[in-house]
Structures are given as C-alpha cells and as structure tokens.
C-alpha cells in the first residue's frame, strides 16, 4: 500500500518533467538554446504565487471547473497498471472507466472554454469536442483488444498478464493496437500533428484556446491536468505496449519505467519536430487510421483465434 501511494506521488511529481523534456529535446534539435528540464516546476511555482484574474463575463463554472478537470485525472492515476512487482493495484478498472474519467475531465475543460464568452474559448471547445469524440471509439477498441490479448478486461491485471506471458501468437494484433494507441496518445494530449501546444494562433490552437482566460492557480490546475494526462497515456503505453521490467527489483523497476516514459516523450518529440501540424479537417483522417488499426487489431485477434 505504501508502495502504491509512493508510485502515485512519484507519477504526479515526474509528470511536469515530461512536457519540459519534450520541449527541451525539440529545442535542441532546432538548434535553439534548450530550456531546463525543470521548467515545468518553475512555471507552477510562479503560477501559485500569482493573483487570479477572473473575467466579468464568467459564471461560477470558472471557479469550479478547474478542480473538476484535474481531479478525475488524478483519480485515474490510482487505477493505472502497477509499475513494479508486488505493488498494490486496482485490478478491476477497465478501459471504459478510464476513458470515462478522461472524458469527464475533458467535459469540464470544454465547458470552461465556453464560460468566458470569448470566441477563442468556443473555438477551442468545439475543436476539442470534435477530436475527442472521434478518439473515444479508437481508445475503447484498442484497450479492449489489448485486454483480450491479456485475458483480462481490467487494465492493471492485463498489464501483469502481459508481463507474465506475452502473447506472441497475437503479435500482429498487438502491434496494430500499439500504433492505434500511440496516435491516440498524440491526439488526446494535443501534440503536434493534431495540436501545437506552443503557439497561440487561432488557426491552429485547440487546448490553449480553451484556457486563454485562466490565470494563476486555475491555470496551474489546468496545466498540471494536461501534464498528468500525458503521464496517464504514456504510463499506459509503457505498461501495456512495452510489457517488460515488471519483474525487476523495485528500484530498477521504477527506473526502467521512468526510462520508458522518457523514451515515449522522446518519440513524441522526434515526431513533433519532423511533422507539420495537420489542418483541423485532416485530423479525422489520422484518427480514422487509429480506429481502423484498432478494428484490425480486434479482428486479427478474433480471426487468429483462441
């Protein structure tokens, strides 16, 4: 139980590192002077001390929604697969619940976007709604397919099963699901081909548009929510699609896990440097690929048979 709590705290703690790390990698690759990897912490501490500017046009939703954006995501952290051997985990939570919790967070975020009466907020919410609606089926199908391979619908147990006994006969299926999930990871976290987190240009922005009117503590809540969301996705990717390292000793296991996370972040950063942002109406194509791969994964699993 202590281990369980510790890992969750650890995850919360390293969550801000990952976006900063990606930014750092990107800047290095673009021959800029890279920011520090701890930039995330600095930002948070700065936001904590700042005053909050609340817009006149907003309602009580603005003062409530940021908390509700963050709390489902933190709750999700409790349900993630274990990262080290012998750790307590919530065995029963399935993909649908995790998707649901993430959607709950997104729901409040979108409402928040509409609350400020700014045209940017609506723009962001609208795009976010569009993207997340299409991402949801892919997410459910992918995780469902993986759970089938792992013989358990519960995400945690599935990860352990995969570690214990990797289904080599379903390798194709597994890879399809992996591709699908990686696309989702990009889409849900607003990384480059889908959204550019570093720009405030109304033609492209999605996530930033929704939170344009937040400041201080509220903005910190939202920012940490987005880093935790990345944490959730990457840790799920790490546990489900890189199923190794669970049997290592605790310290080594944690290290391997963190390495995996940074590896994923590196992958995303490399991808971001090498691709251009997609037009909004091309995004469904990308998500369509995710859906198709999810389907393919499920179908190949069925066809190859149990």
């Amino acid at each position: 139980m202590i281990l369980y709590t510790t890992t969750i705290i650890l995850m919360i703690v390293i969550a801000p590192l990952l976006p900063s790390f990606m930014k750092m990698v990107k800047m290095t690759l673009l021959y800029k002077k890279p920011i520090s990897i701890f930039q995330g912490y600095r930002d948070f501490s700065k936001l904590l001390s700042k005053e909050i500017i609340v817009s006149k046009e907003t309602s009580s939703i603005t003062s409530m929604a940021p908390f509700l954006v963050l709390s489902p995501l933190i709750l999700t952290l409790f349900f993630l697969p274990p990262i080290v051997k012998g750790e307590y985990f919530v065995s029963f939570i399935d993909a649908f619940t995790i998707t649901g919790l993430i959607s709950l967070s997104t729901f409040f975020l979108m409402i928040l976007g509409l609350d400020s009466a700014s045209s940017f907020g609506g723009l962001g919410s609208s795009r976010e709604a569009f993207i997340s609606a299409l991402a949801e089926p892919a997410m459910i199908l992918t995780v469902f397919s993986v759970s089938l391979m792992a013989d358990n619908l519960g995400v945690g147990q599935a990860s352990i099963n995969l570690n214990n006994h990797f289904p080599f006969e379903h390798m194709a299926s597994f890879i399809f699901a992996g591709i699908s999930f990686f696309i989702l990871l990009i889409a849900e976290n607003g990384r480059i081909p889908v959204d550019n987190p570093e720009t405030h240009l109304e033609l492209t922005m999605v996530h930033e548009a929704m939170i344009l009117d937040l400041s201080g503590f509220y903005l910190m809540l939202i920012e940490s929510a987005s880093s935790i969301k990345f944490m959730i996705f990457s840790s799920m990717f790490a546990s489900l699609f890189m199923p190794f390292g669970l049997h290592l000793p605790i310290i080594l296991g944690v290290l391997v896990f963190i390495l995996k996370l940074f590896f994923i972040a590196l992958l995303v950063a490399l991808l971001e440097v090498n691709t251009a942002k997609l037009r909004l109406f091309k995004i469904p194509n990308l998500l369509g690929i995710a859906i198709v791969f999810a389907f393919l994964s499920l179908i190949t699993f069925y066809v190859l048979g149990v």
Partner: peptide
Amino acid sequence: SIFALALTGGLAIACFVKVFGITFLGL
C-alpha cells in the same frame, strides 16, 4: 456495435457541452 456505442458516447459529450455551454454560459 462497440464502435457505434463508443462513438455515440464521444459525440454525446460534444453535444452536451454544446447544449450546456451555449445555453447557460457566456453572455
């Protein structure tokens, strides 16, 4: 069917953000 149901769920969220947001929020 799973796909249909999941997509439905996603779109329903979008739809109710729209209803609630446009009706009750903003100016």
